[in-house]
Design a protein around this nucleic acid. Sequence first.
DNA 1: TCCATATTTCTAGATTATTCGAATTATAGG
DNA 2: CCTATAATTCGAATAATCTAGAAATATGGA
Lengths: 96, 96
Amino acid sequence: MDIEVVAKALKELGHPTRLAVFKRLVKSGESGISVGVVQEELKVPSSTLSHHLASLVSAGLIKQRREGRVLYCVVEYEKLLSVIAFLQEECCADEQ
Amino acid sequence: MDIEVVAKALKELGHPTRLAVFKRLVKSGESGISVGVVQEELKVPSSTLSHHLASLVSAGLIKQRREGRVLYCVVEYEKLLSVIAFLQEECCADEQ
DNA sequence: TCCATATTTCTAGATTATTCGAATTATAGG
DNA sequence: CCTATAATTCGAATAATCTAGAAATATGGA
């Protein structure tokens, strides 16, 4: 996996609010969770949250699915797994 | 591990130059590598590199050891491993 | 002491990120 | 068509990051 792509993903995860959002999305599993519920639970103003979600989308870490007026956010596990794999393979070579 | 601490580590890894530096440090293993060699190999101006290294130190991702005029940089594997563990445990709960 | 080397700190400009209220768009239902 | 709800985009201020040349500091050796 391209180092630029991994850096982008790490950068977007590297913000307290976004990481908390991401963690919450993971908890919601494959079905995802609506933007509104994330907003209520994490007490982030909606416009701010919208920007953070867009950042996560731009890094390919989550995707969104619309159902009527509600937007559901779902983690892209493959992306997360490839980031973890990069850290393990490229960065943990034969440690100890 | 505290989410703020993990976010800080991810943020500092989330920059192309810093991630490349970190990767190079991993390759150098426990003995580490001098700032000068990193600078030559990655072609980063020394003042810029110095800032990036300070960022990695501030996140606890690397440490530095002086030998005479030479500063060696060494990866803090435990920190990296705890970041990976966070992503796996907190963020990968029962995926698929 | 003087010089060379290694690295950091200073300085400053440019760029990018963050925040959030207000306005806007999109959709569903009556 | 009108209203309510869900979420985004706009706008604008503030803050943080990034970059790199120049100056400074630290160390070792002649």
